[in-house]
Amino acid sequence: MSEEKAPAVNQLGLSKADYKAGASTMCKGCGHDRISEAIIQACYDLGVDGRSVIKMSGIGCSSKTPAYFLGQSMGLNSTHGRMPSFATGAHLANLDMNPIGVSGDGDSASIGMGQFVHMIRRNPKMVYIVENNGVYGLTKGQFSATADRRSPSKRGKFPREESIDLCGLALELGAPFVARSFSGDKKQLVPILKAAFSFDGLAFIDVISPCVTFNNHEGSTKSYTHQKEHGVTYHDPFFIAPKEQIDIEYEDGELQEVTLHDGSKLVLRKLEKDHNPAEISSARSMLMETRDRGEILTGLIHVDTEQPSLAEVSGLSREPLVRQEQGDLRPAAGVLQGINDSFRI
């Protein structure tokens, strides 16, 4: 009789299966499914209690994916482009919850551009993922606002308008955490997601996520092949949880460390060029240079752990508003009397 091997468990005693949810209805090979897997991996590794996460999304293929990861978490699939506002409200109502916002390039770069912009200004604590494929999938292949002018559709047509680089825009808006990754690069995406979870503020991640049905053909700049050929990164990221002891031996100057709000660290091993993501000017120039060369920069582009979060600037109680009782919320007897007196003639 062979002994069955017990499944591996994390510090909460949960197996990876506990972080999964319903079966995906994405097309086979869709980049979005890889991102869902990366979210599952990151949460499993971090030992996140799914019940402390809320999954927020808008409308589109990407926005459907919260049904396919973290089955123990509640979620709200809101209206097209409006995920940021719903997530902001839910976050403020309960600071104990960790929101993951999942959006797409149509959702965030077109119809929801205003909300994307203002969410960055507001800086609530949440992970904001744009699953970026340059195309409207559910409505059968129209260009999105992130489609590059030189990137033809399947039928050979080119976008007439300039594309929007969400990372560049996020930098311009003062986002405190800007990263780009690729759904096909789990090795990079998972540590970036972990860092995003540990960040007390808006952690924006633009993930190139090829659409196998409408935008994975030759000439597309959002295809698996194109990303593999033109993707460039300046760091290898390693995530180190709080109190975790990991010795990484490298020569001096090769490592950069980003200490996050909960004490965890993202260690970046330098590859070919110097890029200090703590410096905004470095972030800007790296992004511009690579873009000019037709490359797609991935990795942690910018981080600023000093920027105050929305809850902080609002002077909001750490005790979640949803837990406040009538006694905390309704003014004491007599207060109304005083107000009436102030309205006396």
């Binding site: 409200g89 839910a90 109502a93 309960n94 909300q115 909001l316 109680s317 750490r318 508003l321």
Partner: peptide
Amino acid sequence: ANRFVVVQAEDELAAVGMALGAGWA
């Protein structure tokens, strides 16, 4: 600290979105 929060939103779409998000939560 405050047991309330007031947010001046960027438009009414966002204002009602925040109110609904908070109500949902």
